[in-house]
Nucleic acid binder design. Structure first.
Lengths: 216, 216, 216, 216
DNA sequence: GATGAATGAGGATTCATTCAT
DNA sequence: GATGAATGAATCCTCATTCAT
């Protein structure tokens, strides 16, 4: 049984993911969370946008945490990249709606929080940049354009949030495995049987709604 | 000098790309196009959503056309894949705002047009699916999971719309070149000096705004 | 038949005078003027407070005009004071509701207009100050405390707006006459048969509602 | 240290005087008094309007008391009028914010209390009326219009609440003195050296906030 | 005594849309 | 073709108030 605050965040993630932030009204949010719309202001005095900020903060911090863990586990850029990708995919697939909202609603961030949140995101993405750079420098990777490859890699990984559903054919570990291989290919790593990586165990975020699945 | 209709579409693309469809009001659209908001109903009787539909239709049809051209140029899945990626990147980079709106505002499509537009998009994406499948079957590609690879590839390519700016470091042909190589890697093609591809020459869509660049 | 704009201003004055600015809703204003509340934004884009500003501007400018006329008519401070009081009373009694709102709702003036409106009011009140000072200096008036007397005089005159009703016992010219005598007493003028003053003919402001009188 | 009840009344007077009754919220009142808004209902079960009623009752009763004292001190209308004005000015200047609220928020009185409070006010004002009438009848005053003079006199005296600040140039006794003279002039009393009046010693009301003075 | 939680009603304002001109 | 005027519905948010704790 989630906190009332979390019930609100989950309801918000669900609605934001389905309809977008702007198209979601607070009455909508309120009733989805089992509240009167006025009650939301008890939990998020600054209103709808504060709810978005809470959601994004939670997600970006988890990504950041996953990234840091991956970097600390090994000094080898090959292992680091695998770690970054595995963690990203794991977190995204564990919290697809939260990740989707975080990725898509950047333009709805209130001005006062923009710097902090963009700072978090940039710090996270720079982990990818530095790993690619180092791996390229030491000859592990063969990359023609560092920036472009990083962008392509990140888009590919973020994409998971767009299409992943927990009822899909593949389990999250399988997904992680396939994506680490795709990432390896992108950076020009010759296929070699790498040992099993130490998986980052993603957190199921409090913001991620428990989707009721209605199969047809 | 663009048609009045096109002036409206361009203004709409700009606003939709910046603020999102829901967050953009018709008054906003009108004044951006140099019109009174009421005048828009002359060009789009069904209102705001009709404008979105026009934009998406234009973009999806251009992608479709680019895809068909690529498939017809050669029967070799290797060449076909290169063609699909080149065309996609070329179209997206030539019309980044239109492509971005088309990609991001799927949830704002009015119900009556959803089937047609989703049909267009699915038809386009199935070109990628069938090329990957054939290339995999004939041994040109080495793909562990066809579906997943297609999704990853498409997200990577769509991503161009998210970060591309015409003032960037790379020219569009360079971008096409780099992306075709990344795509080749994704599908497990060993690097081999392929001859120059027959470039699909993308259309600058009437919906794509002429961004005024303000250098600082 | 008043302009639509004026119909709105009149309705607003009536409501503001009865209930106060803050206690008056915009729906209330709209329906009192025969409009949907949204329509008010066509005439006062900045909302309720813009309506208040229009009202006050009209009233303060009329007072200013009346004051200037009085000062120009004669150089004698005795005549000038009589003129100021006559004009003030005439304007106030001709537009009692407008004057009342102008006097009582100073705290509801939006910050952006505060300086301008307070400037108008101060300029007007300083006419009284300078007349009192000059009359005192040349020995026409016998005033123990200039500032205090000015304040007392102004409050006395402004008070007309608080209790005056057109159905009262006294006509406006009688009122003017009585008040000029009271003012003369306040400033210590010995009663002497002054000739008839040149009356300032007050403007019936467009903001002043045509009160429907229901006698009981 | 004031009672909690009085802390609430003082906070309310301050806010009502600054912003007006309607524009002041209970949350505002609560936090200004150091309480949660819900706590106010412990002291004023009927809500915001009950607080206003408490304030006004306190003020009107003090005025009434001051008036009665003035009437009882002498039978001479000249002395009575001096007493009424002195007491009024003294009470108003001692409690300017309370008096201001009492004067300005008549329209916010809840219907159930309107009769009682208006009765109090009318009873108080009729003291002025009867003194003027008697003094006029016995030939002490020379008044052209009794009603009008009473209204003018009362407005002049009430006005003190509008502009008086304790940091002003004049002390309260000086103010009383100047106003009794102004009143004497209004009613046509020839200036004659009256002996010192027996001052009514005004009560500092529990509702009057201790204004924190910030000199600049 | 005091308050956090909750709410229905209403606050001002903006919305997309229509239509006479 | 184009627009000013008008509106009903919806927007976000704040209101005064209640009540269990």
């Amino acid at each position: 049984m989630p906190t009332k605050r979390n019930r609100i965040l989950q309801a918000a993630v669900l609605r934001f993911a389905e309809q977008g932030f702007s198209a979601t009204g607070i009455r909508d949010l309120g009733s989805a969370a089992g509240f009167n719309s006025a009650s939301l202001y008890h939990y998020a005095p600054a209103g709808k946008s504060e709810i978005l900020v809470m959601i994004m903060t939670e997600c970006l911090e988890e990504l950041h945490k996953g990234g840091r863990a991956s970097l600390q586990r090994s000094a080898d850029p090959v292992e680091q990249l695998r770690g970054l990708v595995q963690a990203h995919v794991a977190i995204t697939a564990t919290n697809p709606l939260t990740a989707s909202v975080t990725d898509q609603e950047v333009r709805s961030i209130p001005p006062g929080d923009l710097d902090r949140l963009m700072g978090l995101r940039d710090a996270y993405e720079s982990m990818f940049a530095s790993v690619l750079e180092k791996g390229s420098r030491v000859g592990s990777f063969h990359i023609r354009d560092l920036t472009l490859t990083r962008l392509a890699l990140l888009e590919m990984c973020n994409g998971v949030a767009h299409w992943y559903t927990p009822t899909g054919r593949l389990s999250i570990p399988e997904l992680e495995d396939l994506f680490t291989e795709l990432a390896a290919r992108l950076v020009g790593l010759e296929p070699s049987g790498h040992g099993p990586i130490a998986r980052y165990q993603p957190t199921r975020l409090a913001t991620e709604p428990d989707v009721v699945l209605i199969d047809t």
